[in-house]
């Protein structure tokens, strides 16, 4: 996929602003259940991009990057996957007790350079950069967009193996288990950027059901020096959480850019 821009600067600027554009449309996954008492259970997950939460009325999420991790740390397959006009859907077999992570992780690199007087741009996965943008190309500029979309479901006793972080991009390190959220009790989470506490990060939390109220009613919290934030949910329901951070970086696949973390949590009544 190649685009032409009037200048390198404009190309880079456009890419840098992409998260801001896409944040107008929210990416989300919505599991059918998050707390199950049957240890041989199924959940089905909707995945879409839209403004209103959680309504599929814009475009579906593409499922190529879905990664499901079981309580044993092993990968599970998304089953019965389908992509329709407005949403994608897939099933997850919870074949054992514990907590499962359902994630979509994308790492995209944008590169712009000059070649024989021509403006070249390329966008793709970090792993493919070297194959497309010649190393040492004239005026090579790269920018990285890392996005992580997650939700968690638990069959039986909650476990914590799936919370092991990778040290890449913006990640969630739960203090309160995300399948142990109830109204009126403070929940605490830690945000990490490339494995280190993400201090002073703005976190937005929005309740689902936005179609049936006049105000978005978003909660804005800031992480402390330790990357942690706490939130007390007043009402039960499904919640969407998002944070975006600017990242410093070097050249090539390790270029600076932006990293976003998005999750769906269910809050149960007491």
């Amino acid at each position: 996929m190649t685009h032409r821009f009037h200048s390198l600067a404009a190309a880079i600027a456009l890419f840098a602003s992409l998260p801001a554009i896409s944040s107008a449309h929210r990416q989300w996954m919505l599991p059918s259940s998050t707390v199950l008492s049957n240890t041989d259970a199924w959940v089905t997950v909707d995945a879409a991009v839209s403004n209103g939460l959680f309504y599929f009325d814009h475009v579906p999420m593409r499922l190529a990057s879905v990664r499901i991790t079981g309580p044993d740390g092993l990968e599970r397959k998304a089953q019965n996957a389908a992509t329709g006009k407005y949403r994608s859907t897939f099933d997850v077999h919870l074949n054992g007790a514990g907590t499962y992570k359902i994630a979509m992780v994308q790492s995209t690199v944008f590169a712009a350079w000059e070649e024989a007087g021509q403006q070249k741009t390329w966008r793709g996965s970090a792993a493919d950069l070297a194959a497309h943008a010649p190393a040492g190309a004239q005026g090579l500029k790269t920018s990285r967009m890392n996005s992580r979309l997650e939700t968690f479901v638990t069959a039986g006793k909650p476990s914590s193996k799936v919370f092991e972080t990778t040290g890449v991009g913006l990640e969630l390190a739960p203090v309160t288990h995300p399948n142990d959220l109830v109204t009126g009790e403070a929940a605490t989470f830690q945000m990490l950027l490339d494995g280190k506490p993400a201090a002073g990060l703005d976190v937005t939390i929005i309740a689902g059901g936005s179609r049936y109220r006049d105000k978005e009613g978003e909660m804005k919290v800031k992480t402390g020096a330790d990357g942690k934030f706490s939130v007390t949910f007043k009402d039960p329901g499904m919640y969407w959480m998002n944070a975006t951070a600017a990242q410093a970086g070097g050249e090539g696949p390790a270029a600076g850019g932006r990293s976003s973390y998005t999750a769906t949590f269910e809050v149960l009544p007491q």
């Binding site: 707390v35 199950l36 008492s37 049957n38 240890t39 259970a41 638990t154 039986g156 006793k157 909650p158 142990d180 109830v182 149960l268 009544p269 007491q270």
Partner: peptide, 17 residues
Amino acid sequence: TTWLKDLRMWWRKSGRE
């Protein structure tokens, strides 16, 4: 056992263990 979670207070305090 599928619906034991609907005893949601008990499920959170003890049932899931």
